[in-house]
Nucleic acid binder design. Structure first.
Lengths: 226, 226
DNA sequence: AGGAGAGTACGAACTAGTTAGTACATTTGC
DNA sequence: GCAAATGTACTAACTAGTTCGTACTCTCCT
């Protein structure tokens, strides 16, 4: 009837057929999808394009994720998970508060810098008013613990008398995020408007150090400043 | 041959035909387009949708702007122009450096807050790696003068001995932008992750004041701090 | 003064190509 | 043998852009 399947048997024996690997297929699809969504946005990304770059097929995308939006949500969740896992690597427990906060800012700065794809996913999600993030129970759980670090550092800094009272750890987190996030998210327009590549290693080193300074000066008690 | 044009004459006489208004039509299209692009992104916005919300028609969009991208570019340029014109309202020439910088940060914070549509356009443009901004000669001209204010303030602050030396006005602008931009751009995800509406008046007031403090503490000579 | 032309402004219907999603058949691993 | 996993071919709806035709406005000629 049809000839299109004839080579199958041969292929099956010629090379050890790629075993069925649901989890691998799923993961592969998600990774490709994340790239495409991060690059083109939700509406800009093309399912056919994603499928083509996959080791799998369009059929499988719908088999596993149901719809384009389902795929986007999974990719978003995956991105958050990866990044939070990376952040969990940071350990500042033993450090004095000032050093700990410095490390935290540096780490966040570098981490955001290294995960541009994640930053772009968050930008895109904000364009969509965070509606997919809202639908996802998973993501909120991942993030609530993210301020734990700052809370601990701030508490210790207060106790030691080096930080000033009255600050909200969530707001400190907000400010660190602002400085580190903007550095990646707005690099393109900023560089092009002012004709200076703020992504260059020299510029980044300077901005990084200044981000640290800003946060430390903000949190430190004035009489503790050098 | 065709019947579809029969009603034309009647229509022409029945109601006093709306006068031709090229500039008005153009402007109306751009305003609607900006809204739609800001809401849905370049690929997410629909020409038919834009046309429908216009007082004009799809035909006119292509008549005036040539293509979807042409329309997007015009909307982007318009957004930048509007915002920069608004910023030009700020006059801090007479103020002492510290007060001037404080005003500048407050003004930027408020201005970004009030121009969410513009912020979203910039976000979208960053998703596109600033390629349209690059194509536009207009926009760069508008912006290069934007740091003029900071340069003047910083120079005066140095002369008065209240600011510390060695800072780059462009980097100060970068930091102010980061704090004020992030406040609008990432409100959705931030609020949803931490279950707190950072857009509420109370939260905004606090973040605003802290943005001012951060910048002032960063720029001020330590021995000049209260 | 007024009418012919020309260029500008506008509208409705159409089209070619794209795109998310599906029906159906087949294979693989247990 | 059976359920989960996968491949191929298709479609219905959408979407950027176009075609063809009309109406308005200004100018310039006489």
């Amino acid at each position: 009837m049809s000839t299109r399947l004839e080579p199958t048997k041969n292929r099956a024996r010629a090379a050890p057929t790629r075993a069925q690997d649901p989890e691998g297929t799923r993961q592969n699809i998600i990774e490709v999808a994340a790239q495409e969504f991060a690059l083109n946005g939700l509406s800009g990304a093309r399912i056919d394009e994603i499928a083509a770059k996959t080791r799998s097929s369009k059929r499988m995308i719908y088999y596993y994720f149901g719809s384009k939006e389902g795929l986007y949500l999974s990719a978003l969740e995956n991105a958050y998970r990866q990044v939070r896992e990376g952040e969990a690597q940071l350990d500042v427990a033993g450090l004095p508060p000032l050093d700990a906060l410095k490390r935290l800012v540096e780490f966040t700065f570098d981490h955001h810098h290294q995960h541009e794809e994640f930053i772009r996913m968050v930008m895109i999600e904000n364009i969509h008013h965070g509606e997919f993030l809202e639908r996802s129970g998973v993501i909120r759980e991942l993030n609530v613990t993210a301020i734990g670090n700052i809370e601990a550092i701030y508490a210790k800094g207060l106790a030691d008398g080096v930080f000033r009272p009255g600050l909200d750890p969530l707001e400190i987190h907000w400010q660190i995020s602002a400085l580190c996030f903007f550095n990646v998210s707005n690099r393109a327009t900023f560089s092009k408007i002012f004709g200076k590549d703020v992504g260059s290693p020299a510029a980044q080193a300077s901005l990084r150090q200044q981000a640290v300074e800003m946060v430390l000066r903000f949190v430190t008690r004035p009489d503790q400043l050098p």
